[in-house]
Design a binder for these strands. Structure first.
Length: 423
RNA sequence: GGAGAGGUGGCCGAGCGGCUUAAGGCGGCACCCUGCUAAGGUGUUAUGUGGGCAACUGCAUCGAGGGUUCGAAUCCCUCCCUCUCCGCCA
């Protein structure tokens, strides 16, 4: 959520920043509502003060045994006026809140300006693309041949975009999860979190999935609960509506969770394989920090995610997303893309974003500043470290041999318990 | 799911229609005193949202939302959550 005070003071600047995302966006309407709201609030405040004073007098007069029916009639009229104004106030408050909740974050000054992904910048490319002497197979072919994945029965027991991991496939998935979690907790200083996979609408609003992206999520019919689309939601909201101590910051958290997405707008896209599933595993990194450190922390978190790819020996590149391509709540975002030999292309395997105070303001995550003594909003940062299913696919494709076996990366061997999956 | 008891400031806890500007305590902070330490003294200590350059000041907030009343932390209704017992259950 954008700061209404900032909008009031600097509407042209905010409008300019929002236009970098999309020319339709503007703060003009919310500014007008805000003006009306403050006007009503002032009037209501004055009337409430008046009623309070007169009511106190009524108490006094009654004690003295005087008749107060006339005054009471007058105050009752004031009360009616107040009620009317309060209805308008509530209305305008909700309107303003809703407008603010539907405005995206403003992009960071360092975010490249552009309308779509064609304006994204390749920041760096790491690792050599393997030159194979044979035609590499897709991960779904390999997965079927080695009996690691069962797509058809996944569909049978659920629906399309649900897959069963089986035998060594299930174990490899689990090995990847454990490798990620151990490395982030032991080497990078994150605290492991195992959060709920169902969260309420307040949490979904806190991180920015609601109200705009309701159609992307699975919702429980009987309760105010949604299946998480990413661990970002439960983990960031752990400290919602709290005031942390400055010395508690930065908070580093790493969480493995399954993620659930309806993929509503993706019909026909990536229909084969593990790339786009309704349910997938992910290890997510989440940081809360003081505003002055968020750029630095964002870079560090991105490096923590990159290190997973480097340790696994997977070729990848880092993309700086442009203003038209960054997520709704983000002010700056890097995507990490892993090389997939079968399609001869890079595919997103991690998305590392700095949200500034946008999520913190929505979720009410603050810390007490030692300098001002006042509560200030933290900055939130998160990124995949990494998407597990896509890592699984990348390993199958990048480390396949000509005879159809899979060479397990060195760092995974102790988790997997073998060096190779033989055909 | 059934029955009962509760939800008050950072924490404990009083208040059950106007004397609350939420008592008192603990903790925190500042200062004072005591030749160290311990103890003691004084003051201060919420959040949000308006107005004002500022000092300052209005309003709101006692789990949430409605209602009754001139006036609600206090009375009524609905919901949420916590605890205890019973039932069910991995």
């Amino acid at each position: 959520m954008l700061d209404i005070k900032l909008i009031r003071e600097n509407p042209e600047k905010i409008n300019e920043l929002l236009k970098r995302r999309n020319s339709e966006l503007s703060v003009d309407e919310v500014l007008e509502i805000d003006r009306q709201r403050r006007d009503i609030q002032g009037k209501a405040d004055n009337l409430r003060a008046e009623r309070k004073n007169i009511s106190l007098q009524v108490g006094q007069l009654k004690k003295e045994g005087k008749d107060t029916t006339e005054i009471q009639d007058n105050v009752r009229k004031i009360g009616e006026e107040i009620k009317e104004l309060e209805e308008k106030e509530t209305d305008l408050n909700e309107k303003q809140k809703s407008l603010l909740l539907n405005l995206p974050n403003t992009p960071d000054e360092t975010t490249p300006v552009g309308h779509d992904e064609s304006a994204n910048a390749v920041v760096k490319t790491v690792g050599d693309i393997p030159q194979k002497s044979f035609q590499p197979k897709s991960h779904w072919e390999i997965g079927l041949e080695l009996d690691l994945l069962d797509f058809e029965r996944g569909v049978k027991i659920s629906e399309s975009r649900f897959t069963i991991y089986k035998g060594k496939g299930a174990k490899l998935e689990r090995a990847i999860i454990n490798f990620f979690l151990d490395t982030h907790t032991l080497d990078h200083g994150y605290t492991e979190i195992l959060p709920p996979y169902l969260v309420n609408s307040a949490s979904m609003t806190g991180t920015g999935q609601l109200p705009k992206f309701k159609q992307d999520m699975y919702k429980c019919e009987e309760e105010d609960l949604y299946l998480i689309p990413t661990a970002e939601v439960p983990v960031t909201n752990i400290y919602a509506n709290e005031i942390l101590k400055e010395e508690d910051l930065p908070v580093y958290m790493a969480a493995y969770t399954p993620c659930f997405r309806r993929e509503a707008g993706s019909a026909g896209k990536d229909t084969r394989g593990l790339i786009r599933q309704h349910q997938f595993n992910k290890v997510e990194l989440v940081k809360l920090c003081m505003p002055e450190f968020s750029d630095e922390e964002h870079e560090k978190l991105t490096c923590n995610a990159e290190r997973m790819l480097e340790m696994l020996g997977l070729p990848y590149r880092r993309i700086g997303l442009c203003t038209g391509d960054i997520g709704f709540s983000a002010q700056k975002c890097y995507d990490l893309e892993v090389w997939l030999p079968s399609s001869e292309s890079y595919r997103e395997i991690s998305s590392c974003s700095n949200f500034g105070d946008y999520q913190a303001r929505r979720a009410g995550i603050r810390y007490r500043s030692k300098i001002s003594g006042k509560p200030e909003f933290v900055h939130t940062i998160n990124g995949s470290g990494l998407a597990v299913g896509r890592t699984f696919a990348a390993i199958l494709e990048n480390f396949q041999t000509e005879d159809g076996s899979i060479l397990i990366p060195k760092v995974l061997q102790k988790y997997f318990g073998a060096e190779i999956i033989r055909s």
